Simulated scan of single mutants.
Amino acid sequence: MSKMKGAIVVNTDRCKGCALCVYACPQDVIALAEKKVNVHGYPYVEAVKAEACVGCSSCAIVCPDGCIEVYRKKMEE
């Protein structure tokens, strides 16, 4: 049996902190950085539970600025 494992990469400099991806993530993998901002002064999203990512790409699909890339890998159990 195999299971999908995902990993997200966020372009923090392009992120405007709209948090649409946070609400779209079914696994609560990402959250807005609480005390960090990017070069433009926006709080950005970051993976807070990266190990829980299943690679569904919901976050990347809803991102209006295309800041998120999702990678998927099949894991053998």
Results as ranks from 00 to 15, higher is better:
63 C>Y: 01
41 G>N: 00
32 L>S: 03
9 V>E: 13
34 E>H: 14
58 S>R: 10
68 I>Y: 06
67 C>G: 09
53 C>S: 04
32 L>D: 04
13 D>W: 12
29 V>Q: 01
45 V>H: 06
26 P>W: 04
69 E>N: 14
50 A>V: 07
12 T>V: 14
42 Y>R: 04
12 T>R: 14
56 C>N: 05
47 A>K: 05
47 A>G: 02
10 V>W: 05
23 Y>T: 07
61 I>F: 13
58 S>V: 04
42 Y>T: 07
31 A>N: 13
33 A>G: 09
75 M>P: 01
19 A>N: 07
69 E>T: 14
13 D>S: 14
23 Y>S: 08
13 D>Y: 10
18 C>V: 03
8 I>M: 14
15 C>D: 09
25 C>H: 02
16 K>A: 04
31 A>Q: 13
76 E>M: 09
5 K>Y: 09
11 N>S: 14
16 K>P: 01
62 V>E: 02
9 V>F: 09
49 K>Q: 07
55 G>H: 10
61 I>R: 11
42 Y>Q: 06
74 K>Q: 15
69 E>W: 01
47 A>N: 05
14 R>N: 10
30 I>D: 00
61 I>L: 13
47 A>S: 07
77 E>K: 06
57 S>T: 12
1 M>L: 08
7 A>P: 01
70 V>H: 05
77 E>R: 05
75 M>I: 14
12 T>F: 07
49 K>C: 02
66 G>R: 03
12 T>A: 12
3 K>I: 06
37 V>S: 11
6 G>T: 12
24 A>Q: 01
27 Q>L: 04
35 K>D: 15
29 V>M: 00
64 P>H: 00
12 T>I: 14
7 A>E: 13
52 A>F: 05
58 S>F: 10
35 K>R: 15
